[in-house]
Simulated scan of single mutants.
Amino acid sequence: MGERVCPRCNRKPDIPFIRGICARCYVEREIKLQQRVVVPHCPLCNRYMLSGRWSQYSMKEVLKSVALKLQRELERLFRGYDVYIKLDVDDGGEFTAVISDSHSSFRWRPDALLEVKHQICPDCSRKIVGHHAAIIQVRGIGGPLSRSEKESILELLDRLPQKVKGSIVEVKEVKEGIDIKVSEHSTARSIASRILAECPGTLKESYKLISRSGGEKKTRLNLSVRVSKPVKKKALVEYQGELAIAEWKAGGRVELQLIPSNKRILLDARESVSRIREYTGELEEVEIIGVSTDRVFFIKRGELEYDEVDLKSVIGAPEKGKKAFVVIVGGRRLLAILD
């Protein structure tokens, strides 16, 4: 069989044929794509809206999403023909479609245009008018937050993912603590949970009536978060006169491991604030350099000679390279590991 000739252009192109003519002629005559894809972009928070959702998409992700949408449209137009469609897009937003069959392929630039339209997103609109659906009131247990406690909460808020921070309408320092106004209930609850994951505390929910119109009530969610001073995940503390390793859990609960008995006690947030005190005794920080079947070897900071204790005198899981503290309890030298 000789080479196929396109009856429309009288050429013998080495490209796929569709409905008796070459792919080049077919797209020129039959395909009226002229797609203008509009992607909303909020200039205030630098988020894009794709598939009805505002988020921190990169331009590469935006182009990929638009290319996928155009490819689906092309697949619809070429459905029923024995060809395969693949659409690519470069960093400049130029689209290239590849039409191929089992023998050849044809590259074609569809008449498609990506337009980025500036539009204020709903979250930023609410910020502009000061509207918020929920408020988180962060206060101290038994009194107002100190300056260092406020700074710890503000630093925590700054570490939130951009998607979460985008829903925060306002953060305001008040005499008693910090008020956080949020545009969505679910995000407000998520922020409150993140605060309590790092700080011992309690949470109470309530609703405040804002307005009543036509028998419909409009309410605002109030989240009352009571915290004590944010602490490390693990720390040496004093509990009723005894030395203990404290590990802070979600919801402000604290698990204590008493030294040297290894007895474990679980306290709620209020109990932890009233019963736990910062350990003020003498501590010596060391680094573990080796572990044998019955001994743990460590070196003191700034020294070259190593020291050792038996495994029965170690609180925690010893591993080479871990930091630990040497403490004296009842005349006995112990090695406490917080990692």
Rank of each mutant, 00 (worst) to 15 (best):
G241I: 10
H118F: 08
L44W: 00
R159M: 10
E151G: 09
S261E: 02
L154Y: 05
D307F: 13
A269K: 01
V309C: 06
R53W: 05
H132V: 01
V273D: 10
D339H: 08
V182A: 04
K12Y: 06
F297D: 06
P260F: 03
I120N: 10
T187M: 07
A97C: 09
A250M: 12
I18T: 02
W108K: 04
E198V: 11
V309L: 15
P318N: 01
S148K: 15
R8F: 11
C22P: 10
E149V: 08
V329W: 07
W248Q: 11
L335H: 09
I337V: 09
L304G: 12
H185Y: 14
L304K: 15
V291N: 03
G290V: 03
L338K: 05
R107D: 12
S100L: 01
I289C: 02
L311V: 07
K249G: 09
R139V: 05
G251Q: 09
F298Q: 07
L68R: 12
S186H: 15
R253E: 11
N46R: 13
E247G: 10
E284Y: 02
K163Y: 14
K232S: 14
V314E: 07
L154G: 05
D294R: 13
S272P: 06
R264T: 15
E205W: 04
S224A: 13
G201A: 03
R295V: 13
R24V: 10
S102K: 14
S224E: 15
V291C: 04
R277G: 12
R226T: 04
S183P: 00
E151S: 15
G93W: 01
E205S: 06
Y84L: 13
I15Y: 07
D91S: 09
L160C: 10
R333F: 12
W248I: 14
P200A: 06
Q240P: 03
V296E: 09
A250K: 12
